[in-house]
Design a binder for these strands. Structure first.
Lengths: 166, 166
DNA sequence: CCTTGACCTCAAGTGCGCTTGAACTTACAG
DNA sequence: CTGTAAGTTCAAGCGCACTTGAGGTCAAGG
């Protein structure tokens, strides 16, 4: 299968803007060949790859983590359904953890709502107990000096592939 | 109650770095008085306010939304437990929605995992059906031109106070 | 009085995930 | 052949939530 999709076609079919696709390529998440006139041409498999990237991103992984996960795909051949399945199944625990944390937060909220306390010392909302925090892929990924930062940094750490672990 | 907490004390007791507290103040989320020597002094109620900010932030609100929510607190008097309760109860639907979305994503993942499809046309993961997306407070808040961006922008829109509704 | 640590302001930097703009080239339809 | 839509590169910008650094001031103990 020779590459024949233009960046515009991939963009339309994936919902990712051309600039986004170029950005993905600059990070090594997708690849393209070039025409004589230096224009990108993609093979159809890039669509699945982009689909994976978008979904993984929705799940909350950083592009770096996704790149690492994609790097574990077989080199020579086109990835099989099993390959993709293996990768995406690794999201499961991550999703479970995120859901659990939000539920805990919600329940704490419920138990606090009557008192309106939000006390720093006593309130469950303020003292998460387990220090699992990070809700989404927020900003600041540095390990910090403050307790709050440290706790946040802890909560991080990917669940896919050889994701950067600290 | 005259203000007597230094920024360092508030920082230690809230877990928010001094720079963070100054940043909050610059955005109008908290207030302080000054000593003769221009140093900040806080009243104790700022601790509860900061607690609210941190928790709301964990829930996924932007600082702007939080500021708007805080603006609905009574002007003259110190907020009561009921005031805080009213504010934080507005998080409930937001949390519920986020949880529901993640669960849907997880379930879709489960049904996809066998096939490893991630097909752009057929896969539930790729066609969320309802276009509720946004997982956490990610980047890019502009309403975009692409379908993907539009869908993302839709998913946004706060649930607290007079949050910017487009 | 002096040192030390905590505080001040202001501008700039960071990290992520892109987008935008300028200046230019290519591909294709008529 | 020509017009135009779509492509190219590169640098810079954006939005959020902060942090960092430079250069200086303040407050309290010895």
């Amino acid at each position: 299968m020779e590459p024949h999709l233009t960046i515009g076609e991939v963009s339309r079919r994936s919902g990712v803007a051309p600039s986004g696709l170029r950005y993905y390529e600059s990070l090594g998440l997708i690849a393209s060949e070039r025409t004589g006139g230096n224009q990108r041409r993609y093979r159809r498999s890039v669509l699945r790859r982009v689909a994976f990237i978008r979904t993984a991103s929705r799940v909350g992984l950083t592009l770096e983590q996704i790149r690492d996960a994609l790097a574990t795909l077989p080199d020579g051949r086109t990835p099989t359904a099993q390959d993709w399945s293996r990768l995406s199944s690794s999201w499961r625990p991550l999703l479970d953890a995120r859901i659990a944390e939000l539920e805990r937060l919600r329940d704490d909220l419920d138990s606090c709502i009557g008192c309106g306390c939000l006390s720093l010392e006593r309130c469950a909302l303020q003292n998460p107990g387990d220090r699992a925090s990070a809700l989404g892929p927020g900003p600041r990924y540095l390990e910090g000096d403050t307790p709050a930062d440290a706790a946040r940094a802890e909560a991080r750490g990917g669940g896919v592939g050889a994701a950067a672990r600290r």
